[in-house]
């Protein structure tokens, strides 16, 4: 497959995903082999809303490939502040760089921006929309810990606003998975997403629940996301509801010994710190996987785009994403 840009996880086929994950595994196993692979290549970082970790991991990934980054800086200090359109901004910056990474508060921003540029554009979050690079690192983590086929996964927390969740769910429809969605009723998956999941994955089984307990013992992976205070009218209601979707070692007594617990981070109190030291915890590993997976993506897109020496592999990919409605920021 070939993609010019990475906008959403919906654009990714199973083969696309496997190409990225295989490449990430190669890089992970021998990072030195690619240390000069993209020497002289420049990546433009366009972050219209703060996202320290996503930005840092892209920067790290590019530098570990031998390249460098140029950073637009904060919106406050940029020409955007003066009212420049996104379309103009990307058309200017693409002239400086070999690829662009964009995070923007508006849904559809990456899709629109990609229509104005020729260099590869990777979506690093578009409002409540998509965050495909997060999805790929989530998939990589799932593959390493549980495998992607014959998978039973529980996705819990804020499923309404969590773009991470939507993107991951779409991508998983490429595999033989049973997906359980666990959330308070007010934060259920949007109907649009349910519609798409049914459209995409004939074999995907989707179930929605309001509690973890009935499905916990069947899960291979439990993916926890943060429930944000501002989704609730008052503090009391928030505490009451959010409290039902927090896990600790006692909660996990009913789980399989092989359960893998993931979280896009940052967490607040959805996962008790006591879980960190158990074999369940994979969320720090997940965070670290951001680098090899983003290296793989940059490598595939830059190679495909002909900025460098090929090794014969020509694949690119795309996908979707993650992010929790503006605030969570893997």
């Amino acid at each position: 497959m070939r993609h010019d840009h990475l906008i959403t996880s919906k654009q990714l086929s199973r083969a696309d995903i496997e190409t990225v994950l295989d490449r990430a595994a190669e890089i992970d196993a021998d990072p030195d082999a690619v240390a000069d692979r993209h020497a002289n290549a420049l990546l433009g970082l366009l972050f219209f809303e703060p996202s320290t970790r996503t930005k840092m991991s892209f920067e790290t990934a590019m530098k570990r490939l031998g390249g460098d980054v140029v950073d637009m800086g904060s919106v406050e200090s940029s020409s955007v502040k003066k009212g420049e359109t996104l379309a103009d901004t990307v058309r200017v910056i693409e002239g400086y760089t070999d690829a662009l990474v964009l995070r923007h508060p508006k849904q559809g921003a990456a899709a629109m921006a990609s229509e104005f540029v020729d260099v590869p554009l990777l979506n690093a979050g578009d409002g409540a929309g998509h965050h495909p690079t997060q999805t790929l690192l989530d998939l990589y983590t799932i593959q390493e810990n549980a495998g992607l086929d014959d998978l039973t996964i529980g996705i819990m927390g804020d499923l309404k606003y969590g773009r991470t969740v939507h993107s991951l769910a779409y991508a998983l429809t490429n595999f033989d998975t049973r997906q359980h969605f666990i959330s308070p009723e007010s934060l259920q998956l949007p109907r649009e997403v349910v519609y798409d999941l049914h459209q995409q994955g004939e074999d995907t089984q989707i179930r929605e629940h309001d509690a973890l307990e009935p499905v916990l013992s069947s899960l291979d992976v439990l993916y926890v996301t943060r429930i944000q205070r501002e989704r609730f009218p008052d503090e009391e209601e928030y505490r009451k509801v959010a409290g039902e979707y927090q896990i600790d070692t006692e909660t996990l007594e009913a789980a399989s010994d092989d359960l893998t617990v993931m979280h896009p981070l940052p967490r607040v109190d959805e996962i008790a710190p006591e879980i960190d030291d158990t074999d369940y915890a994979a969320y720090f590993e997940q965070a670290h996987n951001a680098v090899p997976v983003r290296m793989a993506l940059l490598d595939l897109f830059l190679c495909d785009h002909g900025t460098r020496t090929g090794t014969g592999e020509t694949t690119a990919t795309d996908d979707t994403a993650n992010g929790n409605g503006g605030e969570a920021d893997e």
Partner: peptide, 13 residues
């Protein structure tokens, strides 16, 4: 109708 959609923000699209 989505106020958070990029098409509603003065972009040339």
């Amino acid at each position: 109708p989505n106020a958070d959609c990029i098409t509603t923000g003065g972009e040339p699209v």
